[in-house]
Amino acid sequence: MGHENDRVVAGLISERDLCKIREAVCIQVEKIFDSCREKDCIEDARVLFKNTESIRKIIHRAINVKAKRAEVVDVYSDIEPVPFKRGFYTVDIKFFIRVELDFFVPRENGSTRIITRKGLVLFDKKVILFGSEGSVKIFKAHFSKCGADDEGSRLQQDNLPFSKIEVADPIALSARIQESCDKYFDDCCNIEKMPRSVCNLFGDEEDVDLDDADDIVEDEFGRRRVLVTVGLFSIIKLARLVQLLIPAFDFCVPNKECVASTEDDPCELFDTIEFPVDEFFPPQIFDFPGALEAVKEMQEGIEGNKNNSFGE
């Protein structure tokens, strides 16, 4: 930690700071009782679209599709106790992943048109985590200077376990168009049937004029749909509200003044920004953090796969 007038302030801590602990304080915090990390490869997941009539024409005419990017827009989770396993809970999770796709549609003149559309991928998973036991209700009341406290005591929350899901930006690995000759092929599901909070994230997309689009006949053969493969990294936690006793040095008083930008001279603020050299001159592989190690790992993986294939 830093020091100001022999006071301990926020920052790195040293051994001499330990003797300056003033008291033990009781705080209420979210304690993580259990957590796990997941690396999921969501392979050949079906993509749902909002304007199904328009996208069917595009998919019917497309000769290829490319996955540009993916984003987790919402996560639903449900917690249930595990029967005959005290303290453990199942966490059922549904990920709503928005993907952006480029469709390559040929024109009559021989050129190719790229049409970008956004779709939705659903992914479900279930994990088991330890969440301990106990159930209490937490009531709170605010102090009022005049008379009784406002509305008296009110239920704030309980201390039952709750889940917290952290996700990194997914990696859009691949996309393809699947042909189906099944006469019972069902492609009726679309984004309109998703929760409203998710559906509102997809705006209305304009229809595009396609050559010979009116010649498309809806029959039992030749049905197509889009499948994508997405890589997803997540951390799933199970937490409770608990009271912890921790050592405290002092109140956390800010030790620096706020830095405000000046409206009179915006160039003065601009002068404080360093020139973005890396934007103009991308770093070489030996300057990029972890790049050489990554290349080495990939080469070792390739050699290992070769040795395994030869051994077979």
Results as ranks from 00 to 15, higher is better:
I55S: 03
I93F: 07
D74Q: 11
R225H: 14
I191V: 07
F139S: 13
F95P: 00
D6Q: 12
L238S: 00
C36K: 11
D149Q: 11
R225F: 10
E192A: 06
G2E: 13
R225K: 15
K20I: 01
A175C: 05
A67Y: 00
D150M: 12
S174T: 09
V29L: 09
T272N: 08
A62G: 03
S197Y: 07
A62R: 01
L210T: 08
G119M: 03
A148K: 14
S132I: 00
R113V: 04
T262G: 09
R7D: 14
L120D: 04
T272Y: 05
A239I: 09
R113M: 10
V29W: 06
V29N: 04
P254D: 09
C181Q: 11
G87C: 11
E257I: 08
E268N: 07
N5E: 12
R240E: 07
I285L: 14
E100Y: 00
I42K: 01
S180V: 06
R46P: 00
I302S: 01
E293D: 14
I59N: 01
A148Y: 08
D187Y: 04
K137E: 15
F251L: 13
E279P: 00
A291C: 12
K256M: 10
F202Q: 00
G131H: 01
D250R: 15
K57Q: 10
R98H: 04
L245V: 11
I246Y: 07
E274A: 12
F162K: 03
P161H: 05
N190I: 04
D40F: 09
A213V: 06
G311A: 10
I63Y: 05
R7I: 05
C26M: 06
F275L: 14
K137H: 13
C267P: 01
S261N: 12
L155I: 10
E206A: 06
L292H: 07
R240C: 06
R240Q: 09
V73E: 05
K94W: 04
Q157W: 08
F130E: 14
